[in-house]
C-alpha cells in the first residue's frame, strides 16, 4: 500500500493549526467582550498563557479511572471531528479523512466528547458537576433536533452525504447552500448558538450558580486538556459550518474570514444576552429552529 505522505503531514499539522486558531479566537473573544463592557481587556495571548499555566500545574486529584479519562475523551472527540472535516477545498494536505457518508459520522462523533465528559464527571462525585451534566445533556437534546433536521434537508436536497461533494457543488458564490437552502441554514445556525455554549445557552457552565458545572472538579492539567479540546472543537465546528453553508475555503485567508464571521454570531449574541434556564432553552430550540428545520425538509421533499 502506498502511503500518501502529504496526507500524513496534513494529519499532523491540522490539530496544531486548529489549536492556534481556536486559542486566538478565544483571546479575541475576551478582548471583544471587554471592549463592549468598556474595559481594556487582556492581551490576545491570554488564553494561550492560561493553557500553558494549566499544563504546568501539579495535578493530584484522584477520583477514579473515568475521571482521568474524561478530558482524554473530550480531546479525542475534538480531534476526530476535526480529522473528518475538510479544512481547505481541493487540497491534498488538508482534506484529511473525509469519506462517503462523513456527514452522518460527524453527527455522531460530535456528541462523543460530551458523553465522555458526562461519565467522568459522574465519577468525580461533585454535585455541581452532576447538575451541570444533566443540564448539558438536556440542552443537547434541544439543539440536536434542529441541527439534524437541517443536515438531513441538505442531504436530501443534494443527494450526497459527503462533505467534499458538497464543497465541490458550491464552486460559485451563488451556489452556496446558505442561499440555496436558507431555512436549513437558519435552523443550523440557531442550533449552533446552543452548541457553542455562549449566553443565553451557558447554563451548563454557569459559574455563579453551579461553580462552573462539569469541570468543577477538574483542575490543572485536566482543565488544560479541556481548554485545548474546546479550542480545537470550536475550530472544527466553525470549519464544518463553513464547509456546509459557505462553500468551504480555497485558502487560509478565506477560511479565517469566513470562520471568524461565523464565530462572531454566537459571541455577539452571548455578550448582550442574559442566561436561559434549561427548560427555556429547550423550549427555544424546539420552537422556531425546529420549525425552520421542518420547513427546510418539506421544501426539499416537495
Amino acid at each position: 500500500m502506498e502511503i500518501n505522505w502529504l496526507k500524513v503531514l496534513g494529519i499532523l499539522i491540522t490539530p496544531v493549526i486548529a489549536f492556534i486558531v481556536g486559542v486566538t479566537y478565544g483571546g479575541l473573544t475576551r478582548i471583544i467582550t471587554a471592549r463592549i463592557q468598556n474595559r481594556f481587556g487582556p492581551p490576545v495571548t491570554q488564553n494561550f498563557w492560561d493553557i500553558v499555566k494549566l499544563y504546568s500545574k501539579k495535578t493530584n486529584i484522584q477520583h477514579g479511572v473515568m475521571q482521568h479519562l474524561a478530558p482524554v475523551f473530550a480531546i479525542t472527540a475534538s480531534i476526530t471531528t476535526l480529522y473528518f472535516v475538510p479544512v481547505i477545498r481541493e487540497s491534498t494536505v488538508f482534506t484529511n479523512l473525509s469519506f462517503q457518508g462523513d456527514l452522518i459520522f460527524l453527527l455522531y462523533i460530535m456528541v462523543f466528547g460530551s458523553l465522555g465528559m458526562a461519565l467522568g464527571v459522574g465519577q468525580s462525585g461533585n454535585p455541581n458537576g452532576a447538575i451541570g451534566v444533566s443540564r448539558g445533556l438536556s440542552q443537547m437534546v434541544g439543539y440536536e433536533i434542529p441541527f439534524v433536521l437541517a443536515i438531513v434537508a441538505i442531504m436530501i436536497q443534494f443527494k450526497t452525504t459527503n462533505l467534499n461533494d458538497l464543497i465541490a457543488m458550491q464552486n460559485n458564490f451563488n451556489h452556496w447552500i446558505i442561499f440555496q437552502s436558507p431555512f436549513a441554514f437558519l435552523a443550523a445556525i440557531l442550533a449552533f448558538l446552543g452548541m457553542m455554549g455562549y449566553a443565553p445557552f451557558d447554563v451548563v457552565v454557569a459559574p455563579a450558580e453551579i461553580a462552573s458545572g462539569p469541570p468543577s472538579e477538574f483542575g490543572g492539567k485536566y482543565l488544560g486538556l479541556m481548554m485545548t479540546s474546546r479550542s480545537i472543537f470550536t475550530f472544527a465546528k466553525l470549519t464544518l459550518f463553513t464547509d456546509i453553508f459557505l462553500g468551504g475555503a480555497g485558502d487560509f485567508v478565506t477560511l479565517v474570514i469566513k470562520t471568524f464571521a461565523l464565530y462572531m454570531i454566537p459571541v455577539l449574541t452571548g455578550i448582550v444576552n442574559p442566561r436561559f434556564r434549561t427548560e427555556q432553552s429547550i423550549r427555544f430550540f424546539w420552537a422556531w429552529p425546529t420549525v425552520f428545520g421542518i420547513l427546510a425538509v418539506l421544501i426539499v421533499v416537495w
Binding site: 463592557q37 487582556p42 492560561d50 462552573s212 468543577s216 483542575g219 482543565l223
Partner: peptide, 22 residues
C-alpha cells in the same frame, strides 16, 4: 474586576472552584 479598574488586563480572573484556582 469590572470596567473601572479591569484586573483582567493583568490576566487576573475569577474561578469558581478551588480546584481550578491559583
Amino acid at each position: 474586576m469590572t470596567s473601572r479598574y479591569d484586573a483582567e488586563r493583568f490576566g487576573i480572573r475569577g474561578s469558581a472552584t478551588p480546584r481550578q484556582a491559583d
